[in-house]
Each structure stands twice: as structure tokens, then as C-alpha cells.
Amino acid sequence: MTTAPAQAGWRFRQPSVIPGFGLTLGFSLAYLTLIILIPLSGLVWRSAALGWTDFWAIVADRRTINALEISFGTAFAAAAVNVVFGTLVAWVLVRYRFPGRRIVDAMVDLPFALPTAVAGIALTTLYAPNGWIGKLLMPLGIKVAYTPLGIVIALVFIGLPFVVRTVQPIMEEIDREVEEAAATLGASRFQIITRILFPGLAPAIVTGFSLAFARGVGEYGSVIFIAGNLPFKSEIAPLLIVIRLEEYNYPAATAIAAIMLALSFLMLLVVNLVQSWSRKRYG
């Protein structure tokens, strides 16, 4: 090796000729701390200050439990719908060639770009009993707007790109030769899809699901218009936080927010475990 001075065991950073490390890292850390870390730790601090009994009383309140169940339940259902249709959309975009593919591909990102409030009022108008789709569903006895089903619809809209954009690049990377080899060895198309393609896509699908789910749990703007917001029936947890804030009931708002964050992180942890398991299982 070179005659560089002996590596002093622990080193915060590798030496580099490029300047500006202190300035950029210092600024980034200061900005991150001011904008994100201090406010978030304020939330943790406030909920810790509540004490266990008070905290538990708020969280175990029937209305809170219901709101959490609705938020997590509808987000789960919507993410499941998106796994099916998002994967299908990704498949069609990656594998098939048709005129206007580029436009369809670009449209998938609409939910990222369209403000949630706009999506909310548009979906509500569509699914209201006199709306274009609501009118068709009315005779079938299906009510979407102002029910939990409406929440699922809004969350399907919000979550779609998360699944498509996670699965699509992995699908593009699939080596077609493996499929060809399987086909020449006599595998049916169904076998190829279930035994060769799906295992490779499973981790991406799980990631897409968890991203859509996490986004759905916290979603507010697109949901509150279509949900009808009936306590115990179609009231989501983020809305309950807003309601408690408007009542100046800061402790309740803080406790609900803290439990939401905790549950979301727990869920991400579980997803990570599932993912590492599926990586081991399917290589």
C-alpha cells in the first residue's frame, strides 16, 4: 500500500480532495433538524408527557379505535386492489406495444401530480348517487360515496402509482431468455408466470403494497370529501386528529398521531421482515 499515515482506527469520513463537506453536511443537518427532527420529537415528547394512563384512555376510546380500524382497514383493501391492478397495468406497459403507450405510462403518475383535494371532489362527484358512476351503481344497491367503500376508492386512486412504479422497473429487468428457456423445456405459460416471473416480482409487489398502504393510512385530502365522515362508520384517523385539534384537545390529537406513527412504523418493520423472508425464499 501507499505510505499514507497509518489509518487511525475510527474515521468519521474518508479523505477526499473535494471541498465543501463541512459546509454542506452542516447545513443539511441543521436544516433537517430544524424542519423535521425538532418538530417530530416535539410530538414524541408531548405524547410521552401525557403519561401512560391518559395516553391509553385516549387511544382505547371507542371512536379512536374505530377511526384507526377504518384507516388501516380501507388502506389495506385499497393496497390489495392496487397490487392486482397495478401489477396488471405494469405488465401491460412493459410487455405489450400499443399506440399511445407513452401517454398511458405518463398518466399513471397523475395521482402523484394531482392535488389530493382536487382528486377528492372529483371522485365524490363521480360516485355521488347522481354522479356518472354513482348513477350506474345505484340500481345495483351499491353506495360508494359517503361510505367506507368511497374511502377505498379514493385510496385506490392515491396508491396506484406506488405499485406500478415499484413493479414496473423490476419487470423491465426480467431476462426474457429465462422465460424462453422454460418454454423450450415445456413449461406452460401459466407455469412460467407462477413459477418464474412471480417469484422474481414478489419483493417488488410487497414493496409496492407497503408504500400504497402506508400512504393510504395517512391520506387525508382525497378521503374527507368522499367519506361522509360519520363517526364510528367512515371517520378516518387523520380526520379525527383534525377534529381534536379544532376542539383544542391537543393531548388527544397528539396521542392519536403518536399511535398512528407507531403503527405505521410497526407495519413497515413487518413488511421489511416479510421482504427479507421472500428474498431468502425466492432468491
Binding site: L32, L40, Y220, Y250, A257
Partner: peptide, 26 residues
């Protein structure tokens, strides 16, 4: 770890993103 922290706001509900400032400045 720093890269993970930068992504943190994406996994926080928008309502909670507002709430943290209410708790600080309210």
C-alpha cells in the same frame, strides 16, 4: 441513516406534518 431521515416526511401523514408545527407554535 441520514438518507433514511431525509425520506422520513414521505412516511408521515400530512395531517401529522401539520400537527407537529401546531404543537410547537400553537
Amino acid at each position: 441513516f441520514l438518507t433514511t431521515l431525509i425520506d422520513l416526511p414521505f412516511s408521515v401523514s400530512p395531517v401529522i406534518s401539520g400537527l407537529v408545527y401546531v404543537l410547537l407554535f400553537g
